[in-house]
């Protein structure tokens, strides 16, 4: 009987004791997870209403963020989108805390690494977002200025400025993440330098006459006699 007990009952007893010993951690992890899920759900649902008072969507519209979201397949207003993102961040944070509460050593190491890498990811995302906003703002500024100056390739110049700034932001973001650090910088430098050189040559050799006419008009102040005011 003792043999049988030792062979069959003891493992169950040990497992039960271990399980009972582990149960507080499991319960605590489960509670943290459920609370996290509820809090994130609450944030995702209620935050848009709060943000509506702050006129965040108007500000986003001015910064052309809805276009960025639309291109990424997101049709929601910016306030709803940002509430969703905050909701997800809260949910992930609670999940990480819940997993940590389980005290599983390999998982703890993984989480630690992940958490240490997070600031770089956030910085990279921020750089990309600012780069996108800056690129769009400057594209518009350059485009409108070029059109008002009567430059026929205004659209092209605007696009060049936009993508130049965007790729610069991408390079900095990649450097921040440590992905192909040197390769990205070298590629960007060669590409950007090449484009500038190509444009300089094209303008200098192919557009001499246009440059001459343009400068002549600007310097001589050749214009209509209309008094606009």
């Amino acid at each position: 009987m003792d043999v049988l007990k030792e062979l069959f009952v003891e493992p169950f007893r040990v497992f039960f004791n271990d399980f009972m010993g582990y149960l507080p951690q499991l319960t605590s992890a489960l509670c943290i997870f459920i609370i996290g899920a509820l809090v994130s759900l609450f944030i995702a649902k209620q935050l848009p209403r709060l943000l509506a008072f702050t006129k965040l969507d108007v500000l986003a519209q001015r910064l052309d963020i809805p276009t960025l979201l639309y291109r990424g397949g997101i049709r929601d207003p910016f306030s709803k989108f940002i509430s969703g993102v905050i909701g997800w961040i809260v949910f992930i944070m609670f999940t990480l805390i819940a997993v940590k509460a389980l005290r599983l050593t390999p998982m703890e190491i993984l989480i630690e690494r992940f958490v240490l890498y997070l600031p770089q990811v956030f910085t990279a995302i921020l750089i990309m977002l600012l780069g996108y906003l800056m690129a769009n703002f400057l594209r518009r500024t350059v485009l409108i200025t070029a059109v008002n100056a009567g430059i026929k390739s205004a659209g092209l110049i605007g696009q060049f400025v936009k993508y130049g700034i965007f790729f610069f932001a991408l390079t900095v973001a990649m450097e921040q993440l440590g992905i192909g650090k040197d390769t990205v910088i070298i590629t960007y430098t060669i590409t950007f330098g090449g484009i500038v050189l190509a444009l300089a040559l094209a303008f200098g050799l192919g557009g001499q006459d246009q440059a001459k006419t343009y400068l002549k008009q600007r310097l001589s102040g050749e214009k209509d006699g209309i008094e606009h005011l």
Binding site: V58, D64, R140, T141, V147
Partner: peptide, 11 residues
């Protein structure tokens, strides 16, 4: 303030 004021005016 649909877009930057300067952009509206200059355009």
């Amino acid at each position: 303030k649909i877009i930057h004021k300067e952009h509206i005016l200059k355009s």
